[in-house]
Design a protein around this nucleic acid. Structure first.
Lengths: 222, 222
DNA sequence: CGCCGTATTGAAACACCTCAATGCAGGTGG
DNA sequence: CCACCTGCATTGAGGTGTTTCAATACGGCG
């Protein structure tokens, strides 16, 4: 079953019958780059699993300021809201394929699977944990440290050909909105790290980590 | 039952029998000012309800940088971890009285009460929602806007004698660590708001909101 | 080749931080 | 009861990091 490879964590150890029922209820959505899956404050009718592509979880203010909360990769479970409305918007960065489950039915079925519930809780926990790491970075770190924080984070998810190479699918502006900086400051931070010999910039979207220990130390939220 | 007034939200609508069993399992802890209830990374053996006093949820780095994640007030449920260890430390600001429930037994009993589970989930949701608001403030706002964010937040919880008066039980340093600023910058932000006529400072810990609309507008994360 | 979106670089303004001095209030001991 | 101490808050001056605005460079694509 092709799905298994994406659902990984969410459906890990979950009764096959339940998974099959959920799959039958689900539908697939295709999202063009830079389009919205749903908007903040809209009614939460579905829950989602990202199958392909990269998406951004974000909040925007009336004043046009945008805070990116997370970048999500294939396999990630998104859109689970504890309330009936969404706390954030989801925008695609690349073309994306997303499996949608109707929320009511998903929650009803989850009541019948303690394993699914516990997986959801674990995912919720790691999402929260990530928010705390980011909070620490934004409150306490300088620009180049925040950039290291992002690099380390992507590296930890081992997205990319080697564990020393980081693929940045987002633009400098996206990174800026994630780290609470401006595009220019992000760019200068990259150049600073490059001049120091910490990283090498193959191209705008491909970074090589030369001094992994230093990156890790700068990134460290602990 | 005296407890009811504190447990409010967590036990709202929960079967009396369950609440009584939990109460029987629980113990009361007294915490002197500026002492720790538990530390980040320590094993999560209990879950807690704050009955009296004010506590701070925080993360500290080896470098001595501290990020306060939240201030908690009586009635708040704290320490629910999705994993087996804590994601943060809890430090008392004032003298505090805290009811502790052994985690295993609490979770076991919660399995028998859907209402308790749903209350826990709602609390988890609002904690996460708060983290997102703070993330937006730290990433996108200037010092005086962040101070308004804090004032608005405390006002929304209507802690204080009138809805135009805000009681700050924490020091300027605590506020700084919450907002990702220095103590001096926080102080200057207060003075700026005072000079503008936005607030009046009765004393270090008592602030009167003169221009509530402006405070709200500055605070607004939306 | 030339265009356009994205990224880098530069210079100047600004916000925030750092360090140091001063102010203020509550508590203690003479 | 006052003097002193101590901890917290404010104020000031100067330095640093980040933003802003503008110019330039790069790179993919028609």
């Amino acid at each position: 079953m092709a799905l298994a490879k994406y659902y990984g964590r969410l459906f890990e150890g979950v009764d096959r019958g339940i998974v099959d029922q959920l799959e039958a209820l689900s539908s697939l959505r295709e999202l063009a780059p830079h389009s919205y899956l749903f908007n903040q404050y809209s009614e939460a009718r579905g829950v989602f699993v990202l199958e392909q592509g990269v998406i951004m979880i974000e909040r925007s203010s009336a004043a046009g300021r945008r805070q990116i909360i997370a970048f999500s990769y294939p396999g990630d479970f998104v859109g689970l809201s504890h309330n009936d409305y969404f706390e954030y918007s989801v925008e695609s960065l690349t073309h994306a394929t997303i499996r949608e489950f109707p929320r009511r039915e998903f929650l009803a079925l989850s009541d019948r699977s303690p394993q699914l519930k516990s997986n959801m809780s674990a995912i919720g926990g790691s999402v929260f944990s990530h928010a705390l790491d980011q909070l620490f970075a934004l409150g306490q770190k300088k620009a180049h440290e925040r950039v290291c924080f992002l690099l380390q984070e992507i590296r930890d998810r081992h997205v990319g050909p080697s564990d020393r190479t980081v693929q940045l699918l987002m633009t400098r502006q996206d990174i800026a909105d994630y780290l609470g900086l401006t595009m220019e400051t992000v760019s200068r931070a990259f150049m600073k790290l490059k001049k120091e010999g910490t990283i090498a910039i193959e191209n705008n979207h491909t970074i090589h980590i030369l001094n992994a220990d230093y990156v890790e130390e700068m990134a460290c939220a602990k």
